[in-house]
Amino acid sequence: MKIKQISVFLENRKGRLYDVCSLLGKNNINIRALNVAETESFGILRIVVNKPEAAMDAFNEAGIVARLTDVIAVEVEDKPGGLADILKVLSDEDVNIEYMYGFVEKSSDKALMVFRFDDVEKAAEVLTKHNVKIVQEQGVREL
């Protein structure tokens, strides 16, 4: 149910995001989804890639501070109110979202969204119960 997101700690320094992305490129790793959380003095880059283990190896070797975290990717109907329907389910069941962001590409006529929950297990259970389609890890690798 869960997929792996990589969070990368980036200090506020020119070219740092470029360093990270070019490292992935060199290792033939493809970014599927991406989001940057920024503060005054640092940023956290969140990415979903096709080869998370290989990406972590590359980061560790390059001395880049990174960490794997569990997130859930769901298919959202690409129509007005599509995302709202899912958010309503989560809200009604008291599931708290920490943050969310969209995938770069679409596999079908559905949009793909990444959700980070404080309680991943409960979120997965709620979404399944309400027939929201969750993207499996294999699916991300093959995108």
Binding site: Q5, F42, V65
Partner: peptide
């Protein structure tokens, strides 16, 4: 410097 092994992946942890 942030000690890599202690990084949990969240901005709020850093804050």
């Amino acid at each position: 410097e942030l000690y890599p092994k202690m990084f949990l992946g969240e901005a709020k942890q850093i804050e």
